[in-house]
């Protein structure tokens, strides 16, 4: 063989040998020889991504041969993946819409199965420099919705000055959808009111909190599990003048906090045996303990 070809040939055979080695060690690893690695794909909510990852890691210890791959992208992305057939489980922080259910049925031929796995409260965060501590849903509506009348802080409370800087999520987010539905309300002819233009649309739940922490006139919405010491959360009352409720586990579960929601897992058709076992584990005490650890509200 020519000397100039020897080096590339040696490198190629080394690479092939190394990949061969890897395969072998993965096969006769920790599991018995009759079982192989099962992979469950979970896509969707960014609100739930830390929770999904924590579940996945804990489940590895329960069943080492099942690998749950959790990805984010937003609830909308997860439901789209359900339609495209690129995921087994869809994590969603909002309920699936009837037209999306129909689309899944149309494309995959299966009905959507819904599992409620936790509760969450959407907290509205403000900067510590902001003296305002409570707000009503009506005022939030005028701040966030299209055509709303409140644009500066002194319209809410004269104690604070400045234009309200809004931080929200991108439109593929279930949090975006849920907040819009429950805060923006309806127009005069019973249609859903959209968000106003000009909101800074951020990628993830913690990004919203970080931005509010850096902006004295900031206001943003995110899951209550994402609170940091650098932000305050507003107490919210359903109507102006009614007592304002702070986000919390009991308030979310009982519904006294106005912006509380359920977290779902959706599958197209009946989940596979392994996926069903995973969902049952999530609904059991162990899975729910992790829900509480991540800052969400367990089912019981």
């Amino acid at each position: 063989m020519k000397p100039s070809l020897l080096l590339p040939a040696a490198v190629c055979s080394a690479i092939i040998a190394l990949t061969g080695c890897n395969k072998k060690s993965a096969d006769d690893g920790s599991q018995p020889s009759s079982k192989k690695m099962t992979e469950i794909r979970a896509k969707g909510s960014d609100t739930m991504i830390q929770l999904a990852t924590a579940w996945s890691e804990a489940y590895r210890k329960v069943k080492p041969n099942v690998m749950v791959n959790a990805n984010g992208g937003g609830s909308g992305t997860g439901i789209a993946a359900l339609q495209n057939g690129t995921t087994d489980l869809c994590n969603a922080s909002r309920e699936i819409k009837p037209e999306e259910r129909a689309k899944v049925k149309e494309v995959t031929g299966k009905d959507v199965q819904e599992f409620v796995v936790a509760y969450d409260a959407l907290a509205v965060y403000s900067n510590p420099a902001n003296p305002i501590k409570e707000i009503s849903i009506e005022e939030l509506r005028e701040i966030w919705a299209e055509g709303g009348s409140i644009t500066t802080w002194d319209q809410v409370n004269p104690a604070m000055m400045g234009k309200i800087t809004l931080f929200g999520r991108q439109n593929n987010s279930g949090t975006y959808d849920y907040f819009r539905e429950h805060v923006c309300g309806k127009t005069a002819d019973k249609k859903q009111r959209e968000f106003r233009g000009g909101i800074s649309e951020l990628n993830g739940s913690s990004e919203v909190v970080e931005n509010v922490a850096k902006t004295p006139t900031g206001l943003g919405y995110s899951g209550m599990g994402y609170k940091t010491p650098n932000v305050n959360w507003l107490h919210i009352s359903a109507k102006k003048g009614e007592p304002a409720v702070e986000p919390g586990t009991e308030a979310a579960r009982s519904g006294s906090y106005p912006i509380s929601r359920k977290l779902y897992i959706y599958t197209a058709g009946e989940p596979s045996a392994e996926a069903k076992a995973f969902i049952d584990w999530i609904l059991s005490a162990e899975g729910q303990k992790i829900v509480a650890q991540e800052g969400f509200v367990p089912l019981k």
Binding site: G73, A80, Q170
Partner: peptide
């Protein structure tokens, strides 16, 4: 990443490229 026409130098804005990148994952 804010959908508005900027009126001042320090207004947040949004570009076409960022919109495509952010929203392509959700589009069926």
């Amino acid at each position: 990443h804010s959908n508005r026409i900027p009126h001042a130098l320090t207004d947040p804005v949004r570009t076409m490229t960022a919109t495509i990148a952010a929203e392509m994952g959700e589009a069926v």
